[in-house]
Design a protein around this nucleic acid. Structure first.
Lengths: 211, 211
DNA sequence: TTTAGTAACTGGTCTGACCACTTTTGTTGA
DNA sequence: TCAACAAAAGTGGTCAGACCAGTTACTAAA
């Protein structure tokens, strides 16, 4: 690709770190090179390396131990990646389980939003409503992702993202008129806080998708 | 021990930035104080301020213009408060997330059981009921595990078992009389298929446990 | 062999310097 | 008076070096 005029340095470093981790096959919980070493290897100042590392740390991708080094995060959350990953590749029942679990997450997020005046009032729902109405480009998972993000459970988000990658038939086909109708009911119910109606239309929506 | 006064500086700064934005009511797209000014105001080095700012930039919460200043990102969806809040509280929030996710699995299992005549009719529920009544040795997670196993989602079971290992305060103390009462209501509702009552008593049960 | 102490390493923070770019200011010329 | 230009000030971007505070590894003494 054409090298763009020197994008953000620390973003570049984040990418290089990513490559380095892949090349050297550094696993979860394993140690990364020291800041000074990275600074030398990547030919940048140590403070730039640190800015990149701090970003990754805030994202929970690495752990740092004062005096001990920097490690690829091996926390709870990341174990679920393995769980879901190793779980698949079995029978049809497994796939059904993935779907069921994903839908459980989505419904739970909808419940949380419905029961919170603040979350219900977010302008994003109206935006989605309008987008559906105008027939604008909109992926199903965008709405659901937003629901889960807003619901505030980061662990649930991580699990859901994993589940999503194993049920990629979600945005396969076009959004039909029937689906639009159900989606609008869902979004409207969400904003009004009508929990029962929201869950109801969500379930109908899923039925429509699976046809 | 549990005291952790020495939190990450750059996380502290992120918090202070968050407060500052709230105090001065800085809106989307508006300018933040310069790095040097923040450094002086917060009484920390400029490099520390930058580490915090770079973190927020990677999250897309702020925009930086070389020579022009730092601005609050104009984001339609994600509210600054929501995201920062969920990333800041890391430790405590993570634990809360684990609990919330575990409870989501348990409630879902209860729902599934309630809505299936076959599952409702399993003799195990009556056995649990009797055990509670007689005050026999019985761990809380035994009941919940059974619920999830019976619900038939093996993936959910795997996830739940993992979650359980991170919230081992479940069987900490003795089962009180109050708790026994609620548990019996739960088990009775389960057998009768009273979904609403079952979920209700489950939630009350959780409240009792957390006291 | 075990242990205690020290040296080397590593992250955490600050300072000061310089560069590149943008914004503001001030001056000049029409 | 006002427009255009140039200088100055402000701001982010990056680096080097210094020092502190922990951790790890190694070595020498018991």
């Amino acid at each position: 690709m054409e090298d763009k005029p020197a994008k953000k340095m620390f973003i570049q470093i984040v990418k290089q770190l990513h490559d380095l981790i892949a090349e050297q096959n550094i696993q979860e919980g394993q140690k990364l090179p020291s800041e000074r070493m990275l600074s030398e290897q990547l030919q940048v100042g140590r403070s730039s390396v640190r800015e990149a590392l701090r970003s990754l740390e805030l994202l929970g991708l690495i752990e740092t131990r004062h005096g001990g080094g920097t490690y690829l995060a091996s926390m709870q959350h990341h174990q679920f990646v393995e769980i879901v990953g190793s779980f698949i590749l079995q029978d049809e029942k497994s796939i059904a389980d993935v779907h069921a679990t994903r839908e459980m997450h989505e419904k739970e997020a909808i419940r949380i939003i419905c029961q919170s005046d603040n979350l219900r009032a977010l302008p994003i729902w109206q935006s989605f409503f309008v987008m559906v109405e105008l027939g604008q480009e909109l992926k199903r998972e965008d709405i659901l992702r937003e629901c889960i993000i807003v619901s505030g459970n980061r662990l649930a988000l991580k699990i859901w993202l994993q589940l999503l990658s194993f049920s990629n038939n979600l945005s396969a086909n076009e959004i039909t008129e029937e689906e639009k109708m159900e989606l609008k009911i869902l979004l409207a119910s969400l904003q009004m806080g009508y929990l029962h109606e929201a869950i109801d239309s969500y379930e109908k929506w899923m039925v429509i998708i699976k046809e």
